[in-house]
Nucleic acid binder design. Structure first.
Lengths: 189, 189
DNA sequence: AAACACAATTGCCAATTGGCAAGAAATACG
DNA sequence: CGTATTTCTTGCCAATTGGCAATTGTGTTT
């Protein structure tokens, strides 16, 4: 919980009273490994802040194969922002790939915090554009790298994460086959 | 100019009086082919709406080779949003790849419109997350496709654009070599 | 502890893509 | 209008990556 406040303070000012209000509106939600925090086609009614575990934003092709869009881990927000803000159907799935514990805010409480805390909206605008911009940059960088560089870059940028996610999900994030990723790992040793 | 208003109206409501205010604050800026609309390391003091031409957001590696992050064309905003909002240095370059004509708003005028037009900020929040989310999706999709599918997907998603941008800039956007892109084009015929 | 399901590794070969360089085409410039 | 410069195309070959299938490994369940 304190980590959430610390995280928010990176993006804007919130006084002690406002912090207490935030704490009072946060609820704990657990999502079991393999279950979805949000599903494509359904409106996302909660925004989550991950306190334990890892999730992935993913989608499925016509053959039913899944592809990882990106991972979300401890001390980061997870949500389909367009679905949550405009109450439209989510574009994709958010799947827990380990047992997860999140602090969640309902749409109503989030709006209440927005009304009561000047700067609340600003904070989330900053988080959104900052995070999306970074993800876009990282993904776009991968596009012009070979498979091994993508993996090394991932290790660098997300230390410890590679060993916490299944190889096939990491492979689909990196845009390479599981076999290739396995070979790359062997090569690096 | 009317196209700008139409574009904004897709994301939120603005009344006639407010529209007039927007018109009165828009200035025309031209950027010659090859020149920069914004430069890495400098604070972006303007947000632009492209009325004519194509620009690309790009970066350079240590060898001085350039890579295209994405293209921006008619009836879209172009800006380093984090630089413009927080008045911090831009992360990358924005280069005109044809002669360009833009409607620009200075930071001061943009803030004034923000103060005078309820919903102005909302509109830009929506545009930002909607556009970035789409770009991320498109780039992440490319990652798991082979070179030819990337190109066909590009043709599909950005009709007409492929013939308006230099092959080498398109190649660096798609994450393939200019030679490969040239061969792919031949194959498709 | 055995059986099962699922994930990861590995070998083999084919397909794709890159690297380099030469030539052709298009564009810019005096 | 001709020359220079840059961009694009193409051939050749090497390197990378994928596809498939068999095997091994890991974790779960009964």
């Amino acid at each position: 919980m304190e980590e959430l406040i610390t995280y928010l303070l990176q993006f804007g000012y919130i006084n002690a009273h406002q912090q207490e209000l935030i704490r009072s509106k946060a609820n704990i939600r657990t999502v079991a490994k393999g279950a979805y925090f949000a599903e494509a086609g359904k409106v996302s009614t909660q925004i989550g802040y991950v306190t334990d575990g890892i999730l992935r934003v993913c989608y499925y092709d016509k053959l039913g194969d899944s592809f990882t869009r990106y991972f979300v881990y401890e001390n980061r927000f997870v949500v389909d922002i367009n679905s949550f803000r405009d109450e439209i159907p989510s574009a994709e799935y958010i799947e827990a790939i380990t047992d997860c514990r999140l602090l969640v805010f309902s749409k109503e409480d989030f709006s209440l915090l927005s009304a009561r805390i000047p700067g609340w909206d600003d904070i989330f605008v900053k988080i959104t554009s900052y995070v999306l911009e970074n993800k876009l940059k990282f993904t776009s960088n991968m596009l012009v790298q070979d498979a091994q560089k993508r993996y090394l870059n991932f290790l660098d940028h997300y230390p410890g994460l590679a060993n916490r996610v299944p190889l096939n999900m990491l492979a689909s994030y990196l845009g390479i086959t599981p076999s290739s990723l396995s070979r790359i790992r062997k090569n690096i040793l």
